[in-house]
């Protein structure tokens, strides 16, 4: 028996879809507990979270939850990889929010793998880690939401064992900032990045969105990652790894 679960957490919604024969109650319970644990440790909205306490100088990172230091280390690695277009210090203050959700979803998929599920998908608010395939011989199909019409799918991607994340302003406005200036990034409508694992895929989507016009060339230069980029005018461009360009949506 496959399993499907929806969990509200971190101010968004997580969808867990396991396609292997179950039962999966214990595995899903562990994933749900994991997500809420991550929220309790990393939330910048909860005064009692480890990150909030570190920000106030009440807690040393070394004394915090054992996941804190590895996440900050990962964040500094990704900052270097993105040339500073992604940072866990956006605007100068510690805020790993841009990294934590993708990382948590990737690990949630890891929990399911540990429980023996080879074929599942975990979607954290629009950022998805996919394992295996949707059915025997059938790859996963993921729709890319049209940033100009969220009820419309711009294109679909089919594959096995990949991650996909989208950054854009369609849902929460101009919330992505250029970490170097603190100014909102407003050059593009959305950037969708695919790659193997969601931690970096998600952070790279954010970095590419902040880059704006340079996003396509930058992703093109990153081995193992591809992107679908939608401009403010609705024009869609894709990186060279996708053999042919995506269609431009009809006006």
């Amino acid at each position: 028996m496959s399993a499907h679960h929806v969990e509200h957490c971190m101010g968004t919604v997580f969808s867990i879809d396991v396609r292997d024969a179950g039962p999966w109650d214990d595995a899903i319970a562990e994933v749900v507990a994991w997500l809420h644990h991550v929220d309790a440790v990393f939330s910048t909205y909860q005064d009692g979270s480890d990150i909030s306490r570190i920000r106030r100088g009440e807690l040393a990172a070394a004394d915090a939850d054992p996941d804190v230091l590895p996440v900050l280390e990962l964040g500094t690695e990704i900052e270097a990889e993105t040339g500073g277009w992604f940072s866990v210090f956006p605007g100068g203050e510690l805020d790993p929010t841009g990294l934590v959700k993708g990382w948590a979803v990737e690990r949630a998929s890891g929990i399911l793998l540990d429980h023996g599920s080879r074929n599942h998908a975990v979607n954290g608010g629009g950022d998805v880690q996919l394992a295996g395939e949707a059915g025997p011989g059938q790859p996963w199909t993921v729709g890319v939401a049209d940033p100009h019409d969220r009820t419309h799918v711009l294109t679909t991607l089919t594959g096995r064992d990949f991650a996909i994340a989208t950054s854009g302003t369609a849902e929460r406005g101009a919330h992505i900032v250029d970490p170097r200036t603190g100014a909102p990034a407003v050059d593009l409508a959305s950037v969708t990045v695919v790659g193997r694992w969601l931690s970096r895929v998600d952070a790279y989507a954010t970095a590419a969105f902040a880059r704006g016009a340079g996003a396509r060339d930058w992703i093109d230069g990153m081995g193992g990652y591809e992107a679908v980029i939608v401009g403010l005018d609705g024009e869609t461009t894709v990186t060279s790894g996708f053999a042919t360009p995506a269609r431009t949506p009809a006006a």
């Binding site: 890319v144 679909t156 994340a165």
Partner: peptide
Amino acid sequence: FAIPELNQETLQAGNAHIDMVSGATY
């Protein structure tokens, strides 16, 4: 990691089988 396939056919509402949707964080 194999690059997923980008599907270009025009998608009519309801006729595309989709397992998950990626978009800006809701």
